[in-house]
Design a protein around this nucleic acid. Structure first.
Lengths: 81, 81
DNA sequence: TGTCAATATGATCTTTAGAGCATAAAGTGG
DNA sequence: CCACTTTATGCTCTAAAGATCATATTGACA
């Protein structure tokens, strides 16, 4: 799993893909992360204003990490391998 | 440039390193990103609650992108090459 | 060490995320 | 179709981010 994100809605997309890849429901992820299912739904759908703390709680529960890199010229939202 | 971030303060660290690598002052970055110098200072120092919108504004101004990946077992905060 | 740039801190104010709860809508399998 | 699960939406309330300005502190260097 590897997703490039350049906007909050990309983040929502990446989180949803990661969650699905691990076959978790929002409810299960909520239980693991401490973030409410309703909030997860909103984040996955790109609602504005998500805080970094919330993001990292979800990342931890999904065993994800964020890597900052120089911006590539490659296409944005899509998955890369 | 490549930084792993697993917490908001890692993000602050990564942003500061990226800004310095590009030889920009907080003031210059503020002008480019639309985020206030005071706010940049707080983010770099790990003040809580930074929003994704703010982060991406800074990333855009620094030509950075975020990549979500499976968590490695490698050491956390440090830079990797 | 004096000056100016760079960064940090601190206060106020406005806006809003997210908790928390209820419930609607959408999916899905029998 | 129906019942159940999953996801989305909507509400109120409270805590807090970030804009904004003012100022303190730190850092560079001539």
């Amino acid at each position: 799993m590897r997703h490039i994100a350049r906007s909050p809605s990309d983040v929502g997309h990446a989180l949803r893909e990661a969650r699905k890849a691990k076959k978790l429901t929002q409810k299960e992820l909520a239980a693991r992360s401490g973030i409410w299912q309703e909030t997860i739904s909103k984040i996955e759908n790109g609602h504005p204003g998500t805080k970094l703390e919330t993001l990292f709680d979800l990342c931890a529960a999904l065993s994800l990490e964020l890597v900052f890199t120089e911006r590539s010229s490659a296409p944005a939202i899509e998955d890369i391998f």
